[in-house]
Amino acid sequence: MPTSPVQPFDAAQDLRDAPRAAGPRQRPKDAATLILVRAGKTPEVLMGRRAPGHVFMASKWVFPGGRIDRADFTASAATDPAPASRARLEAELPPHRARALCLTAVRETFEETGLILGRAAPPASVAGPWREFRQAGALPDLAALTYVARAITPPGRTRRFDARFFMADASALLAPEPTAGSGELDEIAWLPLEDARALDLPSITRFVLGEVAERIGATTTRPLPFVRMVRGKHLVSHD
């Protein structure tokens, strides 16, 4: 059975989202993003609006996420990544870095929204950015993550990331509603897919939102899109 159609990417809008900036060429930093989905007759996704003062994507609506942290390489978890996602990640990265990026997605979502994608566990005292997560009585549930897309920020931007996008069902959350989080997002909400499409979104967020819409309820395996710039032109390949 054929897969659903692949999503179009708006290259012109991507250039308008974050114009080129003067300065030395930056290497992209590994990062991870999590798209939480509430299934139902009208599926919803969790999104947040970046505060106006941000240098990168100010006032845009995005999914929670951020760059990898050293602590993500050693953090404990309740489960391992699901075999399919693990195999795809490890085709691109060493196993320890692939696992760390899964943890990045969970940690950043907790920091920005207060939501815990995890399983109940005795509270533990640890140092560093995982402290509050572990004190809340949870361990990350990496098996709940599905690797759905990858994108590298084009050269010349004020920030560059090699971002892996993960998707997870909200049923894996220990609590269903977000809190204020760290303040990086000045508004957080569960939104129907069609309402989310109407927001001021970065082009890559809109692209991945379309990918998520195709995956909800899908019965076939979809190719994994990889968005990047090659020789000055945007390229979208599918694995």
Rank of each mutant, 00 (worst) to 15 (best):
A21L: 05
A22T: 10
G23T: 05
P24Q: 13
R25E: 09
Q26A: 07
K29T: 11
K29H: 09
A31H: 10
A32Y: 01
T33S: 08
L34Q: 05
L36F: 03
L36N: 07
L36A: 10
R38K: 14
R38Q: 12
R38P: 13
R38G: 13
G40P: 08
G40S: 14
K41P: 13
K41L: 04
T42G: 11
P43V: 01
P43E: 04
E44S: 03
V45D: 09
L46F: 04
L46C: 11
M47Y: 09
M47R: 11
G48W: 00
R50C: 04
G53P: 09
H54W: 04
V55Q: 15
V55A: 15
F56I: 02
A58W: 06
A58H: 12
S59F: 00
K60T: 06
K60L: 02
W61Q: 11
F63I: 04
F63C: 10
F63Q: 14
G65D: 03
G65M: 00
R67V: 09
I68Y: 03
D69R: 12
R70I: 06
A71P: 04
T74D: 10
S76L: 14
A77Y: 03
A77M: 02
A78H: 09
D80H: 13
D80T: 08
A82S: 04
A82R: 04
P83C: 10
A84V: 09
A84M: 05
S85I: 00
S85C: 06
R86A: 06
R86Y: 02
A87M: 03
L89S: 07
E90K: 05
E90V: 00
A91I: 05
A91P: 10
A91T: 06
E92V: 13
E92T: 07
L93D: 12
P94K: 08
P95L: 02
P95Q: 00
R97Q: 13
A98V: 00
A100G: 05
A100K: 10
A100Q: 02
L101R: 11
C102L: 10
C102D: 09
L103P: 11
L103D: 12
T104G: 13
T104A: 14
A105C: 08
A105L: 12
V106P: 10
E111A: 12
T113R: 11
T113W: 08
G114Y: 04
G114L: 00
L115M: 14
